[in-house]
Simulated scan of single mutants.
Amino acid sequence: MKAKKEEDIKTYGSKDFRDKFLESENTVEHFFKSNSEHFFCLRIEDINQLKYPVPPSKHICYTLLFITSGIHKLKIGFEEYTTKANEMVLVPAGQIYSIDFMSKKITGIICQFHQDILIGKYGNREMLNDFDFLKVWGNPNVTFQKQEAGFISNLLNRLLIEYTETGGTNLDIIQPYLIALLFEINKNAVKTNKSLTAATTLTTKFKELIYLHIKTQHQVSYYASVLNVTPNHLNKSVKSVTGKSPTKWIDETILLEAKYLLYQTNLTINEIAIQVGHYDQSYFSRIFKKHEGVTPIEYRKMIDKS
């Protein structure tokens, strides 16, 4: 067993390299945690020593970046978003993202919070349902006019001061300011069209479901059953709205999760295959190569050389 483990490490990539990366203060996880693991707020320019591009990452918290100058490019899932002055981009909790570019002279504030921080004296977890921009299917880019940008900046700077002085432990201050911030963002965010077509509504529900069940459910028939439609109807609806079939969405989501695990963990290829719901490693490797052009082993080696 020990010999097999050593062989896995040698075959699947440089463990020393990956350990060094995961333990390094240069990794994005170092910044995206507070002592309480519920809240933090920092100036973007203070963390601009990160190396780019930042590989696929995800967190249990919601993350927002408000840009006051410069350019920031972030990929959330499969979509890329470019954010500039007086704009904000928000990453839903648990969503995989990567940072492609951040200009050297960028300024702004990055804030991260766990949904539990809204529970208590002034709020509750259900409040998050009011904010489409925090949903997996929502529009994460928000643009502010000059006056509204000033409001956002004031709220974030107050949170920044509180985090700097207390480390994010004084919820009597943080919670109401954070709630005010979310509602201020909501005034400017693109709202969900209440007169959406049936196909768009069905597609949105499908996206939410694959996000929740991708590690265990890979069949279109499963999602169609949960949504009370036929697989054929689900296929036509999703394809008409997104240009991609449900099968394509499922495959791409599996691959995105796999690439995240290949970079951010020391799991073997077999362990990663199981994590994404494939208990046959050889089948998983074939599927991965079909879509990426290289095997998971080759992909990890490419990462370790970069």
Score class of each variant (00 low, 15 high):
residue 260 Y to K: 14
residue 142 V to I: 15
residue 226 V to R: 11
residue 261 L to H: 04
residue 211 Y to F: 11
residue 202 L to V: 06
residue 78 F to E: 14
residue 18 R to A: 09
residue 170 N to A: 06
residue 154 N to E: 14
residue 226 V to S: 07
residue 7 E to I: 10
residue 50 L to T: 10
residue 235 N to R: 10
residue 237 S to P: 04
residue 23 E to C: 08
residue 108 G to C: 04
residue 10 K to F: 13
residue 252 E to I: 07
residue 78 F to G: 01
residue 233 H to E: 12
residue 108 G to Q: 05
residue 53 P to R: 06
residue 222 Y to Q: 07
residue 175 Q to W: 00
residue 19 D to T: 13
residue 115 Q to T: 04
residue 306 S to P: 00
residue 175 Q to I: 01
residue 106 I to Y: 01
residue 301 K to P: 00
residue 202 L to Q: 05
residue 289 K to I: 02
residue 15 K to R: 04
residue 111 C to I: 03
residue 84 K to V: 15
residue 4 K to F: 07
residue 116 D to W: 01
residue 30 H to C: 13
residue 160 L to M: 08
residue 191 K to T: 12
residue 117 I to F: 02
residue 70 G to I: 15
residue 204 T to A: 02
residue 128 L to K: 06
residue 291 H to A: 05
residue 2 K to A: 10
residue 249 W to I: 10
residue 235 N to I: 01
residue 145 Q to L: 07
residue 125 R to E: 12
residue 247 T to M: 13
residue 187 K to T: 08
residue 3 A to L: 15
residue 95 Q to S: 14
residue 197 T to F: 03
residue 46 D to E: 14
residue 252 E to P: 09
residue 107 T to F: 01
residue 103 S to C: 06
residue 203 T to E: 11
residue 14 S to C: 13
residue 85 A to S: 14
residue 83 T to A: 06
residue 32 F to W: 05
residue 72 H to G: 05
residue 171 L to E: 12
residue 17 F to C: 02
residue 25 E to W: 11
residue 90 L to P: 00
residue 35 N to V: 02
residue 255 L to S: 08
residue 7 E to T: 08
residue 288 F to E: 05
residue 144 F to L: 08
residue 122 Y to Q: 09
residue 190 V to S: 09
residue 196 L to P: 05
residue 304 D to Y: 05
residue 135 K to P: 00
residue 132 D to K: 01
residue 20 K to S: 15
residue 7 E to S: 05
residue 269 I to A: 10
residue 211 Y to W: 07
residue 301 K to D: 12
residue 206 F to E: 07
residue 179 I to E: 06
residue 218 H to K: 14
residue 283 Y to P: 01
residue 36 S to V: 03
residue 147 Q to S: 11
residue 158 R to V: 14
residue 205 K to M: 15
residue 89 V to C: 10
residue 51 K to H: 13
residue 174 I to R: 00
residue 255 L to M: 15
residue 185 I to M: 09
residue 92 P to W: 08
residue 221 S to F: 03
residue 131 F to E: 07
residue 142 V to L: 05
residue 179 I to H: 01
residue 23 E to G: 01
residue 90 L to Q: 02
residue 76 I to A: 09
